Computed example of a mutant assay.
Amino acid sequence: MSAVTVERLPGHVALVTIDRPEARNAVNGDVATGLEAAVDATEADDDIRAVVLTGAGREAFCAGADLKEVSAGRGSALRTERGGFAGFVYRERSKPWIAAVNGKALAGGTELVLACDLVVAVRQAAFGLPEVLRGLIAAAGGLYRLPRAIPPNIALELILTAGQLDAERAHGFGLVNRLVDDVEGLREAALALAAEIARNGPVAVRQSLRVAREANSGLDEAALRALTRDAFERVAASEDFKEGPRAFIEKRAPRWSGR
């Protein structure tokens, strides 16, 4: 059975699942290659406009790196050249990814969440970067992405104490967009958020996402203005730029081409 599954669902949405519940969905070589392949597949499929990433089972979204693999000297298999850890955390993606956090997301699991664009989580979910407990560091983006996502002093406390942030507080800090009561409602809530995105002009969504991702990157105002201008020009050159106003005037739903 594949360690990562990809389901293409109605409404231009894909569901990607890390399927190692017996190992708390920890990342091994199969997960890394599987997630990279999932990114390849969803990027290449023009019919997919938003992607949901989740973990199998009820206990864990992802427990991070499979330490059995690391201790056996196979740690390099947990990352790929293009994507970094899990084949995902540094991978460039043009489409929005939503983390559907069905349980604890710790260490590399939190780093996977931080690499996504939006987060839906169950109330029993928790986040944390406990690497220092093992004499390690969160080297897959967590050390700088977490302080951007939540108040820096809270992030620093979590990083240095190996503490955990429960989903309720994470929602209060803005790390979690939507909070649901149980795993049964998680998939529905995450897919509903994906559907809200997928109904919009795909070129406009991709270009908006490209600019918004750079908001806290350190680019100065002039660089961000230039990036926004480039994004607008790309949108203006698309068929969707004409279709949106036309559909409004004709009082019908737009028929996006994504081109």
Rank of each mutant, 00 (worst) to 15 (best):
R229M: 14
W256T: 11
E221R: 15
L209H: 11
L146F: 05
A63E: 11
A222K: 14
E233N: 14
R79E: 10
A223S: 10
N25I: 02
L224P: 10
V6H: 08
G244V: 11
V180K: 09
V16W: 02
W97C: 04
I197Y: 07
A50Y: 00
E131F: 06
L186I: 06
V122Q: 12
G108W: 00
G185Y: 13
R210S: 15
A115Y: 03
D117Q: 01
E221M: 05
R213F: 12
P245S: 15
G29A: 12
T5H: 12
G258F: 03
G84K: 09
F241A: 15
R246M: 08
I48Y: 03
T33S: 13
A56V: 06
V119W: 01
I137V: 11
P245V: 13
R134Y: 12
V16A: 07
L186C: 02
G34E: 05
Q164N: 06
G141R: 12
A195L: 13
A155M: 07
K68M: 13
A50L: 07
R199Q: 15
A247V: 07
R49S: 02
T42S: 06
F127T: 06
K242E: 14
V176W: 11
V119G: 02
A236P: 05
A125Q: 03
A192I: 09
K251V: 15
L146E: 08
G174P: 01
L191V: 10
G163A: 08
I154A: 14
V211L: 07
V89N: 02
G163W: 13
F127M: 02
P245Y: 13
N153R: 11
A226D: 15
L118A: 10
G258V: 01
R225Q: 12
T228I: 06
F127V: 01
A247H: 13
L146I: 07
E81G: 02
G29N: 09
I18R: 10
R210K: 10
R259N: 12
Q164K: 13
V13N: 09
N177P: 00
A190M: 04
S94V: 03
E184D: 15
G109N: 12
F85E: 00
W256K: 10
G218C: 06
N25C: 03
A194K: 06
A121W: 01
G55C: 09
G135D: 02
T228D: 10
P202I: 13
R206N: 11
K95D: 03
L35R: 15
R145C: 04
E184Q: 13
N153P: 00
D230M: 02
G174C: 06
E36G: 13
S257P: 00
A198Q: 01
D181N: 14
F232R: 05
L53S: 11
R91W: 00
G87P: 04
Q207P: 07
E36D: 05
A195I: 07
D66V: 05
D166V: 09
E239M: 08
S71A: 15
V205F: 01
A222I: 08
T5I: 07
A223E: 11
A192P: 03
I150T: 08
K104Y: 13
V211A: 14
A50D: 09
G84E: 00
L67N: 13
A23K: 14
G11V: 01
R49F: 07
E81C: 09
A41H: 08
V205Q: 04
R252D: 05
D117V: 00
A198I: 03
V13Q: 08
V27P: 04
A3H: 11
R225V: 10
V120I: 00
S94G: 04
V13H: 07
G29V: 04
A72T: 06
